[in-house]
Design a protein around this nucleic acid. Structure first.
Lengths: 126, 126
DNA sequence: ATTGCTGTACGAGTCTGATCGTACTGCATG
DNA sequence: CATGCAGTACGATCAGACTCGTACAGCAAT
C-alpha cells in the first residue's frame, strides 16, 4: 500500500458573510503556536468540541449549549475560552448567545494536517 | 496556489536490524491515544527532542546526552519517560546508555500528518 | 420593569505535571 | 575490584490547569 496522502477531509471554508458581529479577542494567525494548540487539544472534552464543530458544522457557528455536554456552564466557559485563546475557534456574540466555529483556514495554513487528525479522532469507548 | 498535500517529509523508516536489545516497556501501536500524544507534545522541550530526532536521526537511535539540552539529568529522564509513555519514542538499552528513536511507522499509521507538523515546527525565537 | 435565558467572573479546592537535588543502580574499563 | 559514567528513583517544591458553585452582566420578550 502506498503511503497515504494526508488532506483535511471534506471540510470547506465558507466565506464569512458580511455584517457579522466582531469576533471576540483572539490571537492572529501568524501568532499561533503549535505547542499551545496541541496543549489545548490534549483534553478529550475540548477535542470532542472541536471535532463536533468540524464534522457537524455544515452551517455556520454554534452556541455553547448546542453541544450535548453534561457539565456546568462555568466549566464550558473555561474550555471554550481555552480553545479561543489557543486560536482554534473563533467566537462571536449574537444577542444572547456566543457562537463558535473552528478557524479552519488559519489552522490549515499554519498546521497542515492537524484538522484531519482531529476529524479522524474517535473518543474513548465508554 | 493549490491546497498543499501533506506528507511526512523525507523521513524514511529504517528496517530494524536484528539482534537489538528489547525495547523498554511501551504502549502498543493500537493503544496510542491522540489526546495523550498531543499532551506529550505540548511541551517545547519535548517537541524539540522529537523534532531533533526526526530531522537529524539519519543514523539510528541516539542517547539522551546527544541532544544539547542544558538541564539536569533527572529532568531529561522525566521528559524521555513521558515521550515513551505516550508512545512517541522507543528506547533501548545499549550497555551504559539508553538510546531513543521516534516510532515513525506507528505514528504515521495511527496519526497521519502528525510527524510533518513536528518536523515543520520552529522553536520560539530566543 | 420584571422575568428568563445565555454565558461570564471570581474564587476555592483539587490534581497533575514540571523542575531538580540527592542518592542510587548497572555496566564497563582499567 | 575499584573507579567512573549514563541514567533512574524518589521525594520536595512549585506552578498551572481542571472543576464547579455562586453571584453577576446583558439581552430579549412579556
Amino acid at each position: 500500500m502506498p503511503a497515504a496522502v494526508h488532506r483535511t477531509p471534506a471540510i470547506r471554508v465558507l466565506p464569512e458573510p458580511e455584517g457579522l458581529p466582531d469576533p471576540l479577542p483572539e490571537p492572529a494567525a501568524e501568532d499561533l503556536r503549535l505547542e499551545t494548540v496541541l496543549g489545548a487539544l490534549s483534553d478529550t472534552l475540548r477535542l470532542r468540541i472541536v471535532r463536533t464543530l468540524l464534522l457537524e458544522a455544515e452551517r455556520f457557528d454554534h452556541p455553547c449549549g448546542w453541544f450535548g455536554i453534561d457539565r456546568p456552564k462555568s466549566s464550558l466557559t473555561h474550555h471554550f475560552k481555552a480553545l479561543r485563546a489557543a486560536g482554534i475557534i473563533r467566537q462571536r456574540q449574537y444577542g444572547l448567545e456566543r457562537r463558535s466555529h473552528v478557524r479552519i483556514d488559519d489552522l490549515d495554513t499554519r498546521f497542515p494536517g492537524l484538522l484531519g487528525l482531529i476529524a479522524a479522532w474517535e473518543p474513548e469507548a465508554d
